[in-house]
Design a protein around this nucleic acid. Structure first.
Lengths: 130, 130
DNA sequence: TTATTATTGCGACTTAGTTGCAATAATAAG
DNA sequence: CTTATTATTGCAACTAAGTCGCAATAATAA
């Protein structure tokens, strides 16, 4: 199953590369100005995840967000997304936090994925709040 | 809006108290042997969350899980769920990890919620794996 | 230029969770 | 104990996110 170069894919990747945020499908579609089909966007994003180009984060409403892998660790060719994300309850942006975490696991446990999400108010929205 | 004591509520709370796991709606319903309506279960669980009796965790498939608050911090009457959860990809159980985390946030940011989920294989399933 | 097959778009579908509303039942009032 | 109040329940309908099958399209290879 060899990958092909398509307009949809480069468009989507460009949108993701142009921001340091993790975008929801909705936000992505808005940026793309509805030029790409819903289902296609999801399929492209999932392919990107498989290829390690992008990582997926789940917010606490159960919505997927996708971010271009910029500052992700890659020890021995394996992607690691052991950083947290912050979601602002007001403006809805999801951003990657720098801080890397290592959680000690009970003996014998094997990790495959990491999903860390903190919600609250970003500086701008917190100030506007009262 | 005063709370009332009902059968459904005590049943649900008892199921949650009887385990150290975070249960999905599905798992809970199985334990209850379908005696309680789907919508009611969700409503009861959300009420428990509001009252700080239970905490909600999102797994990386976007599914909610609920756990009785046993080892949760309560500094000045405010609940804190700053611990991680581990979800086994094979048996599907979600358990609370002891390790508490503190993530440094950019200045001016305000935290309201914390959701940390690690996926992989628990000891039992990891051993059975190969 | 043609053949192969990955990718797309469309629509239908699934699953998790929510909501409106009438019926039920826990508590308060008499 | 009886009645009134209203929180809670059950049901069905709904919503929203994400997936899937399939025929049409379009990258790449031949």
């Amino acid at each position: 199953m060899k990958r092909r170069n398509t307009q949809a894919q480069t468009d989507i990747l460009n949108v993701l590369k142009a921001t340091d945020r993790a975008l929801s499908h909705e936000q992505l579609q808005a940026e793309l100005e509805a030029k790409v089909d819903r289902a296609t966007i999801y399929r492209v994003l999932n392919r990107f995840c498989e290829d390690g180009l992008v990582h997926k984060v789940m917010d606490d409403d159960g919505k997927q967000h996708f971010a271009y892998c910029a500052g992700c660790d890659k020890p021995n060719n394996k992607h690691q997304h052991n950083h947290f994300h912050f979601k602002c309850r007001k403006c809805g942006t999801v951003e990657c936090l720098q801080h890397k975490v290592h959680i000690p696991l009970p003996e014998g446990y094997v990790v495959t994925d990491f999903n860390g999400m903190i919600s609250g108010y970003c500086k701008k929205c917190a100030e506007e709040q009262q």
